[in-house]
Amino acid sequence: MSTRLTQRVRRSTLALIGTATLALLLPVTSATAAALDRSTDRTATAAPVDVFMKDHPSDVGIQPHGLSPIWASPDIKVCPTAVECATSQNPIVGQTNYIFIKLRNPGPYGAGGMEQGEIHVYRTTPGGGATWPTHWTEIGWMSVPVYAGVTTVTIPWNGVPGPGHFCLLARWVSPNDPMTFEGPSNSVNTRENNNIAWRNVDSVALSTSGQTEVRPFAIGNVLREPTRNSVVFSEDGAPLRTAGGRLVVDLGPTLFARWVEGGMAGKGIREAGRNRVEIVDPGQASLDNLMLRGNERLTMRLLFTATNPVEKPIAVMVTQFGPDADGKDWADLGGVRYDVTVSKQDR
């Protein structure tokens, strides 16, 4: 049976079960029997509901899908004011920011009728391997009607904590449009549910003065048993070297010791001091054989510098790969796209 047909059958079955339960609870009279008959008729003929958010610009709501990456949703945007900005920005620490979420109706399994539900937004440390719901903190939620077309919801984000760099997760929750699967792996949940969207995009503003911008990056293990993982570096578009850029990873004592125990495996890298590794080629580098204990999540630091101004942002992608909860030995467990800009030194 196809995924689409399976989900339609599942949703229809849930609706019929709900009607049957109601019939058992109500006293049976001729009036209520007639009402139940009418209710059953409405349930049987009710149009299916499917509200979705895009995981990727090419996403049309099919669940699951094979698009990648799934952690840079275009339907989640952070802005400093209640007026939607053109492009998502890093939140400003200590003040109210606003999260804009686009809900699309209908998806491939719906008919476009209005649906009432709740949109919930969560945050976690940027990176991969964030266990659901353990590593996620709710920012806010809102009950909202979603009509045919695109509905934009605005969630205030009060008192953003420092350092102001987060992964964001949006979840559409509706009894008539349920999740098809939920487990500990956020990457699996996102692929399996068009009700979930995930955004890990961070801006890194540098100048030719040579200051260092630091970004946290966490890697985690959603399984109960130890796993071996890799952190892979890549570029989308112009390479970081065009800006005279340098990227150094401070693994910290725990992760550095794990990397040494794993044979200091990797490519396109070299040691750069205590607990640090320089990413010599950010376009094709990796830190490999990093052991994580069951349900463990550890954070490293990425240190960016540059010397030459650039006209357009440079995209550096950092992704965790390793075993996932669906049984895959090598899966994208989450990552971050860093949009690096370099301006001339202020005089």
Score class of each variant (00 low, 15 high):
M1S: 11
S2P: 14
V9F: 09
T13D: 00
L16V: 08
L16N: 04
G18V: 00
T21N: 13
T29A: 09
A33L: 08
A35G: 12
L36N: 11
S39T: 04
R42E: 11
D50M: 00
D50Q: 01
Q63S: 15
P64R: 13
P64Q: 13
I70D: 05
S73Y: 13
A86F: 06
Q89A: 15
Q89P: 00
Q89H: 00
Q95S: 15
N97V: 07
I99P: 10
I101W: 05
I101F: 10
R104Q: 13
N105I: 07
G112K: 09
G113N: 09
Q116I: 10
W136E: 00
V144A: 13
G149N: 08
T151L: 02
T152M: 06
T154Y: 00
N158C: 08
G162S: 15
G162L: 04
P163S: 03
G164C: 13
A170T: 06
P175L: 15
F181W: 10
V188C: 05
V188Q: 04
N189D: 11
E192R: 09
N194D: 08
W198K: 01
R199Y: 07
V201I: 03
A205I: 02
S207P: 03
S207M: 01
Q211K: 14
L223V: 02
L223W: 02
T227D: 06
E235D: 10
E235R: 10
G244E: 07
R246V: 09
V248W: 03
V249F: 01
P253H: 06
T254Y: 14
K267H: 12
G268R: 10
G268P: 06
I269L: 15
I269R: 12
R270L: 12
R270H: 03
E271W: 08
E271L: 15
R276K: 15
E278S: 07
E278V: 02
E278N: 04
I279V: 15
D281H: 07
G283C: 11
A285H: 07
S286V: 04
L287Y: 09
L292P: 05
R293N: 11
N295E: 14
E296K: 04
E296M: 05
L298W: 00
L298Q: 13
L298M: 12
T299H: 01
P309G: 09
K328W: 00
T341P: 07
V342E: 00
S343L: 12
K344N: 10
